[in-house]
Design a protein around this nucleic acid. Structure first.
Lengths: 174, 174
DNA sequence: ACAAACTTTCAGTAAATATTGAAAATACAG
DNA sequence: CTGTATTTTCAATATTTACTGAAAGTTTGT
C-alpha cells in the first residue's frame, strides 16, 4: 500500500516560506530577507510592514531592514494603497527579472573584490627571484586572466536588456 | 608628487591569503578553508598539516577539517613525500579545473534543494480556489520551469569533460 | 504648528558558526 | 606486538552574525 501525501495550501505556503528562508543561508542572504521575498512572491496583493511582521512573526526592525534590502536590490517595489497612509510592498514576480538582478548583485559581491585584489597584486612583479615568488606571480596572473573573462561574461549575461543574452544561452545549451 | 606603493613579496603573500580568506565568507566558504586553499595555491612545494598550522596560525583541528573539506571537493590532493611519514598536500593549480569543481559544488548546494522543494510543492495543485492559491501555484510553476533550465545549463557547463563547454561559452561571448 | 501615524535606527541580546585543544583513534616502524 | 608518530573527533569556548524592541526621527493631515 502506498500513501501519497498531498499538502493543503496553508501547509504548502508555510513550507515554501520556511524552506526559501533556510536556502537563503546557502545563497549568502539572511533568512528573514529570503522569507520576506518568498512571502511577497506568492502574495496576490501588496503587503504592509505590519502584514509581513505578522505573517513571519518577526520584529518591526527586522521587517524594515529586510524590506529595505530587497528594495535596494530592486526586486521589491513600493506600492501606494488608496486611502491608507502605510507603505505597501510588492515583489517583482517575473522570475527572469529578479534572478538577473540577484545575479548581478552576486557578481558584484563575489567577483569584483577578487578582480581588485588581483589587480593590486599584479603590480609588484619586477623582482622575482625565488621559486615561491615565481609560483605566486604565476598563480596571480592566471587567476587574473580567468576572473576577467568570467567577469565580462557575467556582465553580458546579467546586464543585457531583457535578459536576452541569458535567454539566448539557455536556448543554445538547451 | 605621486607615490606608487609596490608590495614586497611577503606582504603580497599575506595580503593574498588574508583577502582570499575574507572573500570566502562572500562565497559561503569559511575563512580557514579559503585560506588553506590560498596558501596551497601559491606554494611551490607540498605542505604538511604542521606547515599549514604554522603559516596560518590556526589549530590542528581547524587545519585538519579545512584540508578534509578541500580534499572532498577534489581541489586539493594528498602527496607522499619520500622519507616522511606525514601527509603532504598540494592544491589543484589549474584555475579552470578547480573553478569547475567549485561551480559544481555550489550548483548542488544552491540549486538542487530548490528543485526538490518545487517538485514537492507542484504536486498539490488540484484544489485551487482562492486568489492566494492561484498566485502560489503560478509562482511555483514558473520558478520550477526556470530553475530546471538553469540547472541543466549549470550541469552542462560544470560537468563537461575538460570544461570545454564553459570554454566555448567564453569564446562565444568574449 | 501640533499631534497622530508611520518608519528608521541602533544598543543590547540571542542565535548561529567557527575555532580550539586535548583526548581518542589510527597507522606505522622495528 | 609495542611504542611512537600522526590524524581525527568533538565538547567547550570564542567569534560573528542576526534579531529585537523601544526611542528617535519623519511624514502627513488638520
Amino acid at each position: 500500500m502506498i500513501y501519497i501525501w498531498v499538502m493543503k495550501y496553508p501547509e504548502a505556503k508555510e513550507k515554501f516560506i520556511e524552506t526559501w528562508g533556510n536556502l537563503g543561508s546557502q545563497w549568502g542572504v539572511n533568512k528573514s530577507i529570503a522569507q520576506v521575498q518568498a512571502l511577497l512572491l506568492i502574495a496576490p496583493e501588496p503587503l504592509s510592514t505590519d502584514d509581513i511582521m505578522q505573517e513571519l512573526t518577526i520584529s518591526r526592525g527586522n521587517a524594515n531592514m529586510s524590506i529595505r534590502q530587497l528594495l535596494d536590490w530592486g526586486i521589491v517595489y513600493k506600492k501606494a494603497v488608496a486611502g491608507d497612509r502605510k507603505e505597501y510592498f510588492v515583489a517583482e514576480k517575473n522570475v527572469w527579472k529578479w534572478s538577473l538582478k540577484i545575479g548581478n548583485v552576486r557578481k558584484q559581491r563575489e567577483l569584483n573584490p577578487v578582480l581588485e585584489l588581483l589587480r593590486e597584486l599584479a603590480e609588484g612583479n619586477e623582482t622575482i627571484k625565488t621559486a615561491e615568488e615565481k609560483e605566486f606571480a604565476k598563480q596571480v596572473k592566471e587567476l587574473n586572466a580567468f576572473t576577467q573573462q568570467i567577469s565580462k561574461l557575467a556582465d553580458k549575461l546579467f546586464l543585457s536588456p531583457q535578459g536576452e543574452q541569458l535567454l539566448k544561452l539557455l536556448k543554445m545549451f538547451a
